[in-house]
Design a protein around this nucleic acid. Structure first.
Length: 603
RNA sequence: GCGCCUAUAGCUCAGGGGACAGAGCGCCGGCCUCCGGAGCCGGGUGCGGAGGUUCGAAUCCUCCUAGGCGCACCA
């Protein structure tokens, strides 16, 4: 247990014990003993209120029918501080008890940091539970965009945080390389190829309009030519030479095309085979590019799981059978439904459409079952806010299959608004105006992108200011933190040049009690919080705590460094301050590591 | 229409029952004979509105207002 956690536990016990003693002495009228668990101990915002404070007296005053202030004073009289890290306690305000620690705890923390080094901040909070974090999972029908970049940063950093907190973590990317959309992809490819060949071809309704497909179509032509392409018209065009007005599909009374998807296409196995070949080619290309840009972004997955795999393994059939066997499905209107309302969903969901196709959720259920069967205790999915509510369906299905729905946790990330020159850059997939992630990374450094995306809490709609992130000089929060690290490295280079022994082991022997000024103590206190912060970030799934913490450490350091001279002071003081600097550099390196951001030795 | 999320400083965002509400950007003014001025110090304004619960509410509850997102035999 780290020093902070130990102190907190100690204070809890002290307070509970003191209240019980006061009760025993007849100074407090409580009908029961108080246990340490119900004592809340927190860090006061104002340092004048000590290192720690408890509101126990406020909370218990009603039950004890005593004024909070009096209750606090009675408890304070019975505090037995001997043998603890608490130096003194005082009652303040409406009835808080404030605790002031002995300096030893800071010194102990500093030694602990130097001893643990790159491991400082790790904990066992996760108890070795196996977690699978699935994130991005973009469709293989185009390049990744800026929203995917947010997901990638958050998912990756969250995974790191969980690892630090003692979970066993794997990262996974689920590729939807099957079903309708892939067929639509093949169709769009076919049209692009025709257009490249100078033929007259129009995209079928609902097809991918993005021009990025043209390049892929060109690659296909270069590598494979048109060999194997059926002679007739594609299945979304009329079989006979068209002489009807202008529609290739029946229209509804609203004038919208009916059956916008492939369900309304002519049956043409030969052409379908061709489309499927085109689709496979495109999927492969896109997945390859996605993998590439993510690698550039420093995100590496343990596994890319393909929907086609789970389909080939018969996953969807099994899911449907098991759900049916369990009596949770029924037929209606030619479709097979899951009675998900029995498990908290607000309506039942279609599993198998009237045309015999699975809905999206079936292979996805199979995939999640597969994850659980691979031995993961916890599944975390990162989804876009536009999928909100999907977890209810998925959890319902898992419950129906006899799994604990609590094993699945779905986090929804909000939107990203790109801003350039004070104006929002519009991102519309339908109009094909995707803000490509690779192009985005040409403009913004990976460090800045990751930092900015993680900086915001996941359920806040965020604005990404390209101009700010682009600033390679100042005013950029990323550089503020990195600069602190570089500055420290520079300091140690100079220490070495002047022959000082700045090794960790030697440093912890320094007279650390000399670190007595406010900037020094503030910095140390901040460093002491690290394990707590990591643990909180993990348990609450709040990666943005890490960027905030990194900034706070950098700030505390810059203050210290401005006010306290390190080199050239009296030997003992220099050694002590070097120890503090070494610890700071270590913490910065660790937190930057979690963020997947470079910790530069010079800038 | 129903459901969920959001509303905090001029702007972008933290804080999610505690003691005077924070940071960055922007603006104004200071600080280098010396370890990196990509730094430090100082200066101003704010919890969308109205009720309620509580010793105590930015935080919890209700209503209202304004945004966003869902409510597919799409993925």
């Amino acid at each position: 247990m780290n020093v902070v956690a130990r102190v907190r536990a100690q204070i809890r016990e002290l307070v509970a014990e003191a209240i019980n003693q006061a009760r025993f002495a007849g100074e407090v009228t409580l009908s029961r003993d108080v246990s340490p668990d119900e004592i809340s101990v927190e860090r006061p915002k104002d340092r004048a209120h000590g290192d720690w404070a408890t509101n126990a007296a406020l909370v218990l005053s009603r039950e004890a029918r005593t004024a909070p202030r009096m209750l606090a004073e009675a408890a304070a009289r019975h505090l037995n501080l001997s043998g603890t890290l608490v130096e003194r306690a005082e009652v303040a305000g409406p009835g808080f008890i404030n605790f002031f620690l002995r300096d030893e705890w800071l010194i102990e923390t500093l030694r602990a940091i130097l001893a643990a080094g790159p491991d400082y901040g790790k904990s066992r909070a996760g108890e070795g539970r196996r977690v699978l974090v699935e994130f991005v999972s973009a469709n293989p029908t185009g390049p990744l965009n800026v929203v995917n970049a947010r997901h990638a940063a958050v998912g990756d950093v969250l995974s790191n945080i969980l690892m630090w907190a003692g979970y066993r973590v794997d990262r996974e990317f689920y590729v939807n390389d099957a079903g309708n959309q892939v067929r639509m992809l093949g169709a769009a490819m076919d049209v692009r190829i025709r257009q490249l060949l100078g033929e007259d071809a129009r995209l079928p309704e609902g097809a991918y309009a993005g021009e990025y497909l043209i390049d892929v179509a060109r690659e296909f032509l270069r590598e494979h030519g048109t060999a194997g392409r059926p002679a007739g018209p594609p299945p979304w065009e009329p079989a006979a030479p068209a002489n009807e007005a202008n529609s290739s599909a029946p229209t509804t009374k609203d004038g919208e095309r009916d059956g916008a998807g492939p369900a309304s296409w002519r049956t043409d196995p030969e052409y379908e085979a061709w489309l499927s070949r085109l689709a496979r080619f495109a999927v492969e290309k896109f997945v390859e590019r996605q993998r590439e840009v993510l690698r550039r972004y420093r995100v590496e997955y343990d596994r890319w799981y393909f929907e086609s795999e789970i389909r080939a393994a018969g996953g969807p059939e099994q899911v449907v059978r098991r759900l049916s066997d369990a009596g949770h499905t029924y037929r209606d209107g030619g479709a097979l439904w899951l009675a998900s309302t029995r498990f908290g969903d607000d309506k039942d969901r279609v599993l198998v459409k009237a045309d015999g196709e699975y809905t999206y959720v079936v292979p996805d259920i199979a995939y999640h079952v597969n994850k659980l069967e691979r031995g993961y205790d916890l599944l975390i999915d990162l989804l876009g806010r536009d999928h909100y509510g999907y977890h209810v369906r998925l959890k319902a299905a898992l419950s129906a299959l006899g799994f604990d729905p609590q094993a699945l946790e779905v986090l929804y990330l909000h939107m990203v608004h790109l801003v350039r020159g004070g104006e929002e850059v519009r991102m519309s997939k339908r109009r094909g105006e995707i803000v490509d992630m690779a192009e985005f990374l040409d403009e913004v450094s990976v460090d800045a992108a990751r930092y900015f995306f993680v900086m915001r809490s996941i359920d806040s709609e965020m604005e990404f200011d390209l101009d700010l992130a682009n600033l390679k000089t100042s005013d950029n929060p990323v550089y503020y933190v990195q600069y602190a690290h570089a500055r420290l490295c520079s300091l140690f280079r100079q220490a070495q040049e002047s022959g000082l022994d700045a090794a960790g082991g030697t440093l912890s022997e320094a007279p650390l009690e000399r670190l007595a000024s406010e900037p020094e103590r503030d910095l140390l206190r901040k460093l002491a919080e690290f394990p707590d912060e990591v643990e909180l970030a993990a348990l609450r799934r709040e990666p943005h705590r890490m960027t905030r913490y990194a900034h706070e450490v950098a700030s505390a350091f810059h203050v210290f460094y401005t006010r306290c001279r390190v080199l050239g002071e009296e030997a003992g003081l220099t050694a002590a301050r070097l120890a503090l600097c070494a610890a700071t550099r270590q913490v910065l390196a660790n937190v930057l590591g979690i963020l997947g951001i470079d910790a530069p030795e010079q800038m």
